[in-house]
Amino acid sequence: MAHLKLVLTLLLLITLSIAVTLRLLQILAPRRPPPKARPYPNPHLARTPGINTPYHRLKLLGTFNPQLANQYTYLLVVLGSGGHTAEMMALLENLDRDDGSGITQYTHRRYVVSEGDEVSVRRAKAFEEEFAGACERDATSRETRGVPGGMASRDPGTNNQRPNYGSWDVVVVPRARKIHQSLWTAPMSCLRCLVACLRLLSTPPPDPKGPGMWRMKATARARPRKMMPRYPNLILTNGPATATVMVLAATVLRFFDYRGANEANALRTIYVESFARVKKLSLSGRILLPLVDRFLVQWMELVTPGSRTEYVGICVW
């Protein structure tokens, strides 16, 4: 009788692990379907030499989803402390190094910082304020010259005086592991962080409709209202402990396909390995390598045959 119980438990465990493995294989990177194609939120500034290669066009063709045009685009940026934040902000600034077009394609930006990291909050705020200022100047100069388009334009139908540069917020999560925290209590704090990340990911940002936000034109009432997607379309990380937990949380949500978490355009992840990692991947990097959709490295030494790493050159000057 005891034998039978043991065998049954073993069988159950084996089936369970096979099922989990199969599910992971199904949702993780090489087999995950490509994103559904959608129009640029700011088509004036669409300039994409990289993604218009024939290969990518082929992959995107036939998947165009017109419903996605009625959704805001939502980018989640995980900031770490010190160096990680500095690199991430440099990367974001480089997105619009030429003309400000990089960040305007993401209509909501949410920055995640760890508890007590005031510096990162301030950097994100400074970045957004500078961007808003650049949009104001761009819109004003275009209006006086009568040139449409640009980084952001003001809605003509409303009294809204602010150009459409989107919205942003900062969210704080508990630290995964405090510096000098003992290893015994680390799992507990990681779990706390994971729960916070799960909650954060599944709570969409407030629909920006208040005064000064993206108000619909008064004449266009018949058009469907723009919606904020439930999950971030894209998570951008570069390796602090919080980022690891955040990607794990996204994987958990996609594993169970909780409220459409596994849709093609939800919770896609990009990991950018730190500039400081020249020859060996970091610990977060090694953990996240199989979990993220794209894994970018800044040094050629990290591109080995058969590995998923992609070389982008130094992008955090």
């Binding site: 959608r38 640029y40 994409t48 990289g50 993604i51 995107l60 685009t73």
Partner: peptide
């Protein structure tokens, strides 16, 4: 030869942004 791709392009690809 390795041609570095801009992170911006990779991000826009993952968003599915397309001109067509």
């Amino acid at each position: 030869p390795v041609v570095p791709v801009e992170p911006r392009s990779i991000m826009e690809y993952e968003m599915g942004f397309s001109l067509e």
